[in-house]
Amino acid sequence: MDVLISGIITQGFIYGIMSMGVIVTYLVLDFPDMTVDGSFPLGAAVAASLLLSGVNPWLCCIAAFFAGTLAGTVTGILHVKLHIKNLLSGIITMTALYSINLHLTGKPNLFLGNAVTIFTFENGLFAGIPSSIATLIVAFLIAMVIKFALDWFMKTKKGFLVRTVGDNPQLVASLGQNIGAVKIIALAIANGFAALAGAVICQYQQFFDISMGLGTIVMGLVAVIIGKTVFGRIRLIQLSTIAILGTIIYRATIAIALNIGFESIDLKLITAVVFVIALVLSSSEIKESIVRLFKVKNNA
């Protein structure tokens, strides 16, 4: 396979992990969660600093995931307990995370150099396979583990509550369950995914950069909108599948744009344009649900 193509798909799987979190907060929970812009680099910062102190790269991923769930929990508590509006709660956590991330890494960029990462294939299982393909396989496997875990969770009783709280919080209360607690769990999971994606991306590109989280949420949203528009009508398709496929298409769009002469400094501009195009082309139902999310409202 072409290295370029395998790169697109690999990144699609990795960022897809983050998009799965975004689809949970935005489409299921009906919560415009800006925390992601901070929890994605948080995952990277945790992984990078642990890796450099010699921790097993897989453990680094797990640690990053838990750091992310903590960030989501903070946003949830700000919203639920202190009654801060949902959009603002995320922004506050995201702002705080910027400093925390810097504290974790000690400086704005960190190169992983020769540290062993989950994408180090000197010997073992992947011997003889081109490293771009081995990388793709590892990214695919991580994305699948998360996908199936999420699919499973959404089918549990707790998952049912998460689905209900976004649609009809009153029903959750009527069932004798704490609305706030359900929201916090969903936010924790979503940000855990974002942080895990950050940890994996950081190992993939072998460096951490403090600004790497900028626009993560927009990227996740574009991916979700694209996924919903293109695959949303397929019967019984899982939200997680929509998130991953949407992300791969988005990554491909970006790669094509770079290929036809745009520069990497144009990336955010391209993302913004793709966002608008995706929103315009999406069905009115998706458009409404996204636009509605960003109307400031308080539903603590």
């Binding site: 089918k155 549990t156 009783k157 707790k158 509550l161 069932l175 004798g176 369950q177």
Partner: peptide
């Protein structure tokens, strides 16, 4: 309702 909403099949 009345039971825990845990990780069992919904």
């Amino acid at each position: 309702k009345g039971n825990k909403y845990g990780m069992e099949a919904g």
